[in-house]
Each structure stands twice: as C-alpha cells, then as structure tokens.
Design a protein around this nucleic acid. Structure first.
Length: 449
DNA sequence: CTAGGGTTAG
C-alpha cells in the first residue's frame, strides 16, 4: 500500500541519521551513498511488481483457470515479504460479499508459497492467514492453522492471541483461549516480563475487562508477582467496570507491595477523581505528581476534565483547562472535544460553539469526535437544520461522517419526531454503505490503532 | 516498538 512513499523517504531519513545533509543534489555523480541503497530498493520494487502479478493470477482463479500452474510459470523467488504483501492485499480486500473467495484464494496462495520455499513462512504470515480466515468466518480453518503453526515450531504471539480471541462470540470460549495461551510453551510474550502481562495487555486493547480480573487471579494463584503494568491494567479494568472502590483497594495493594505508581497510575486516578466530582483531591494529586517529578501532561488534564464534565461540574472543567494552559500544556483536539462535550451535556450550546471556534483559531483541526459532539449539541438545542448543515460542513472539510455521527443525528431526529428528515439522513447512510457497518463491526472494533 | 486521554445508546 504505502510502499511507494516508504521507498522514497527511507534513504533520505537514513542519510539524516548518519549526519548527511538531506539536501541531496541529484546532479552530483559522486554522491554514492544513495547507490548503496539500490539493492535493497531494487528488492522491494521487485516484490511490489511480483505482488501485482500474483494478485492478477489469483483474480482469474476459477474452474477454467489453474492458478497454481500459472503461479508456477512465473518462476518467482518467493520471499516472506512477498507472502506478507499478497496476504495483506487479500485481507484488505475482504468485504461481506467476497468472504468465501478471499479465504479460498488466500489459502491457496499460502499453501502454494510454502511448497515453493520452506523459509517463506513465519509467525507473522501464519497470523495473517489466520486473520483472513477470521474475517471470512472460517473459524475451524483458523483453529487448524493455529495447531499447524505450533506443530511446525512457530511461536504464537500477542497478535495470534488477539486474532483468536476476537472470533470468540461467548465469554466461555474466550476463557478457553486465554487458558490455552497461559499454558502454552510456544507463546512468545516478549517484550513483556511474563506471559500474564502480555495477555493482560492484549485484553485491555480489546476491552475484555472481566477476563482481565480473571487472568489476574490466575496470575496470583501461580505466585507470579505483579508489577506496575499488571496493576495499571487491573485498575483500568476495575474503572471501566465501575468498581471504583476496588480501584482504591488495588492502589492500597500497590503501596503495600512497594511498587511505585507511574504516569499511567496517576492518569487512572485523575479519571476516578474526575468521575467522582472530586476536584479538590484532583488538585492535590496534580501537586503530588509535580513533587515526584511526574509533570502532568495534556492527557492527564483531559482525563480529569472528561470526568468532571460528565459529572456536570463545568466550573471545575474550566478551572483545570485554564490551569493546564498556564502550565504550558496546549490543549489538543481530544482536550477541546472533551470540553465541548462537557458544555453540550450541560446544555451550554453557545459555550460549546465558542470552544469550537477557539480550537480552530488555535490550529487544532476538529475531527469526527468533535463534530459528533457539536451535532449532538445542536440536536439537544433543537437546531436540526444547523445540525444537518454541520454534517455538510465536516464533509467539505474532508472529515467524513461515520456510523456514530449519523446515529447521533438520526436518533435525535426520531426522538423529536422529525421523521422525514430522519429518513433522508438514513438514505444517505445507506448510500454510503454504512448499513454494512454492523457486519464489519467485529473487523474494526478490535483493530489496534 | 510495554499501556495511557475523546463519540451514539443499549
């Protein structure tokens, strides 16, 4: 995909690292440092070229076309890079209509490449093939591949774990997957200290908070000692599950075990104090952070302001927002969006608008989250015409409305019994294919950022 | 190359 641009900037960047000026003169024949990158550059150009040829052949696959034979005729040198690129292309092309074909063609190529060159598979290519099966709902085949990679001696990774877990529809099944990885001898959990932290972290990424609690219990049963990462993940899960009292209990345990809190720990507590509408304690914590040399940053203030906004304490939001600026932290898109959401929740549309204007003046570009908050505010104030023109606005500024933005508008229109306009917006959604969103939900929800 | 702040409503 982005291979072109990669090839172009890489030599320049490496040159910069070596202390060589980035202003390369193209006419300078003696400038031979670029030549040393040629073989590498050539290699990737070849891969790219061959990916196209392979895809072209796979696309023709059918009863009247023997694609394996055609692939053989190419007499390719099959490398891990080639396999990876082809599988990635297939993975990205999956839609709800071509699932069967993608799974079949992907696997055909996967098997064929393995027959050409023993060294062209690794954990990564297995993960990719498994991901293709996962997205195509070929779960049995995915499990078979997991066994195969283990038998062949490839280690499973956090990525493997995530792919398997995301296909589990029910909690019981997810627990089985977790058990398998905890006991696995071939689980490559680096760079984490032990597999428990790797698993806990993976679970955090895909929002499996109850499982985090369970894995933590297993970890204690097996006498592993938790570190600050373990505790932070656990507290984060407790926070998301609304078990605020237990977050404090974990903090107490951290102190008892002589583990030092870090910036993530503080962030979690700013979240808790904000949500609990406790600006006084928050202020003490901010002072404490500075004392121990952990200077609060935008994300810390944002966590706090988010909680306070939800709790309806706008005065405190504004106070900490100003304090942040005074501390030399410039608010970013997320922070502005949190402030706007706070005003919207409190029915302060004009203040929300002022924030929206301010962020643009300060060079922060509103994104889908920001527009969604503003549209929600306009709906709450019954300004549906303006809400709809804001939808047009965001589009013209290159920020395409997503499923959430449309839902905000449609739901509010329905609540206000403005059915014709609601239908109109829904038709637009359909025209953009956003109804298929539900079908693709599993594909995107768990994707790493 | 160890995570971290934001959206609908159910």
């Amino acid at each position: 995909m982005d291979f072109d641009s990669n090839l172009d900037w890489k030599p320049v960047v490496e040159g910069t690292l070596l202390g060589i000026s980035t202003q390369v003169n193209d006419d300078d024949e003696e400038n031979d440092f670029r030549h040393s990158f040629l073989p590498r550059r050539r290699f990737f150009e070849d891969v790219r070229f061959n990916v196209e040829r392979v895809i072209e052949i796979l696309q023709q696959d059918g009863p009247d076309f023997d694609s394996k034979l055609a692939l053989n005729k190419l007499r390719l040198k099959v490398s891990i890079y080639l396999v990876r690129e082809v599988l990635l292309r297939i993975l990205r092309s999956i839609t709800h209509l071509n699932k069967c074909r993608c799974a079949r063609l992907g696997f055909k190529f996967f098997v064929w490449s393995g027959e050409q060159e023993k060294q062209c598979h690794n954990s990564n290519t297995y993960n990719l093939m498994m991901k293709i099966f996962a997205d195509c709902n070929e779960l049995k085949k995915m499990w078979i591949l997991l066994d195969e990679m283990t038998i062949k001696g490839f280690s499973t990774t956090a990525r493997t774990f995530n792919i398997m877990l995301c296909t589990c529809g029910e909690a019981g099944m997810r627990k089985k997957v977790v058990e398998r990885f905890i006991q696995s001898k071939t689980f490559n959990f680096r760079p984490f200290k032990h597999s428990f932290n790797a698993i806990l972290h993976s679970l955090l990424v895909i929002n499996q908070y109850r499982l985090i609690e369970w894995v933590y219990q297993q970890m204690i049963l097996e006498k592993h000692s938790p570190d600050i990462l373990t505790y932070n993940v656990l507290m984060y899960a407790k926070l998301r599950l609304g078990k605020l009292d237990q977050v404090y209990r974990v903090l107490h345990e951290i102190g008892m075990n002589g583990v030092s809190p870090d910036l993530h720990t503080y962030n979690i507590f700013l979240h808790v104090l904000g949500a609990g509408d406790n600006p006084l304690e928050a202020r003490n914590l901010l002072i404490h952070m500075k004392e121990v040399g952990c200077e609060p940053r935008v994300i810390h203030f944002t966590s706090l302001i988010h909680g306070l906004g939800r709790a309806g304490n706008l005065e405190a939001c504004e106070h900490f927002f100003n304090e942040m600026v005074q501390n030399g932290c410039m608010p970013d898109v997320v922070c502005y969006t949190v402030m706007i959401t706070g005003y919207v929740v409190a029915n302060e549309l004009e203040k929300a608008r002022a924030m929206f204007d301010e962020m643009i003046i300060n060079g922060q570009l509103p994104n889908v989250f920001t527009y969604n908050a503003m549209i929600r505010g306009l709906c709450v104030a019954k300004k549906f015409g303006e809400a709809r023109s804001m939808l047009r606005d965001m589009e013209s500024r290159g920020c395409n409305p997503n499923f959430v933005v449309y839902s905000t508008l449609v739901d509010n229109l329905r609540k206000a019994r403005k059915f014709p306009m609601a239908r109109e917006i829904m038709r637009e959604m359909e025209a953009r294919g956003l109804y298929h969103y539900v079908d693709l939900l599993a594909k995107y929800r768990y994707r790493r950022r």
